[in-house]
């Protein structure tokens, strides 16, 4: 599916199913960026490590590891240590995210200045150069 999407939009972002099923089914180079979201728990790190391997095997472009719900430097270090050669972005544990979900609203609207929102936004702005250069979705198939 992702391989064949061909929108007249600059960017397509897919929120995939939990786990690695979809990644396993993706063909080579079918996406340009993989955002690998991981918590500093053994289970989450295990899934992410396999995800990173798959992303590399399949040449899925730029891999960004999002260390989410980081509570302290210990959490952040655990993720950095597991992905020493990758770009790791730390997103703090943030009650504003939980609160937004509780009310069924977007964190970006309810708490635009919340630390987790800011961290994810900053990472996204970093992708703008790529989004711009790649032009239409059609060109990047």
């Amino acid at each position: 599916m992702l391989s064949s999407v061909n929108f007249t939009h600059d960017t397509v972002i897919a929120d995939l199913e939990a786990g690695l099923g979809t990644l396993t089914r993706l063909g080579n180079a079918q996406v340009d960026v993989v955002l690998l979201v991981v918590e500093a728990t053994t289970k989450s790190l295990e899934v992410a490590a396999r995800g990173a391997d798959l992303a590399r095997e399949k040449s899925l472009g730029r891999l960004i590891v999002i260390a989410n719900r980081v509570r302290d430097e210990v959490d952040a270090d655990a993720v950095r240590k597991a992905f020493p050669d990758d770009e790791v972005i730390a997103v703090p544990h943030d009650p504003a995210i939980v609160e937004a979900d509780r009310h069924g609203v977007a964190a970006l609207d309810a708490a635009p200045d919340a630390p987790a929102v800011r961290a994810i936004s900053a990472m996204a702005r970093n992708l703008l150069v790529m989004a711009g250069h790649n032009g239409s979705g059609a060109a990047s198939v």
């Binding site: 972002i13 929120d15 995939l16 939990a18 960026v33 993989v34 989450s44």
Partner: peptide, 24 residues
């Protein structure tokens, strides 16, 4: 550009995807 957001269940994929989509 195509982005895929992946990870274990409950890791924060949807939260991340939403903020990235709207920021871009």
């Amino acid at each position: 550009m195509k982005l895929a957001v992946v990870g274990k269940g409950g890791s924060g994929k949807t939260t991340t995807a939403a903020v990235v989509a709207r920021t871009l």
